[in-house]
Amino acid sequence: MVRLGGAVRSSLAQRLVALTGRGVLHVVVIGIALVWLIPSLGLAVTSLRPPGDIAASGWWTVLGQPRFTLDNYAEVLSSQGLAQNFLNSLFITVPSTILPLSIGALAAFGFAWLRFPGRDWIFLGVLAMMIIPIQVSLVPSLLLFRTLGLTGSYVGIWLAHTAFGLPFAIFLLRNFFVQLPRDLIEAAQMDGASSLGIFRRIIVPLSVPAIASLAVFQFLWVWNDLLMALIFVQQPSQQPLTVAMSTLLSTYGQEFNLLSAASFILMVVPLIVFFSLQRYFVRGITAGAVK
């Protein structure tokens, strides 16, 4: 027992050292988390304060005089018309997600499971297209939309987002599709299933996780896009939230009551996606990093 007591004492000293080390570790890690939280927190608090308070004292003093209001949100949504821009963002984003996903999935199936001359070379070309920066396409596409009379509608930006989403969509889905069991597909072919039937009844149901990750990635990419909307959507009444936000910034540069509320409206959909689909979200973003 006595010997055991000695052992306990020495391990107590060791544990004290280890404990101090762990203390420092916790302080550093929690500190990092705080640094990453504070900027968003500041914006959230600011968006809920009356304009007078925002100008008079910093958001970090809010606990001293906790006065909150939703007036800033009401003002940007109604007088600044952001409710309309929110809808516009949806009108742009939903088709710009569905189109590249469905067209891309069909093509990926073709590249993965159908044989046709030049297939692998064409696929290589698709891969090469992933690195083309959108800047090289903006002016020619804009001219094309003007010629076709598409500048006043969303068709132009849908097509452009689709075309730019395709190389990555095909790359990701094709790599997923080729890993599906060959036996399953060959058996279905034996049974006389058509290619379209195999695609719909075997490939797509087995690829839901990959398709979901890609959908989340493409949805956020389009929702958060500023550059393409800035150039392809020129009617103010049709512009998405990102463009409305940049207009708001140039008009009310330092009026953070409006800017912060507007930013939160812009962030709310991505945040919902983040919290509800985190698994697909992380997968989609990390895979999409190559884009």
């Binding site: 956020l220 990102t242 812009l266």
Partner: peptide, 10 residues
Amino acid sequence: AISATAVGVI
């Protein structure tokens, strides 16, 4: 998840 636009304002 947040657009560069919102990051800018933050």
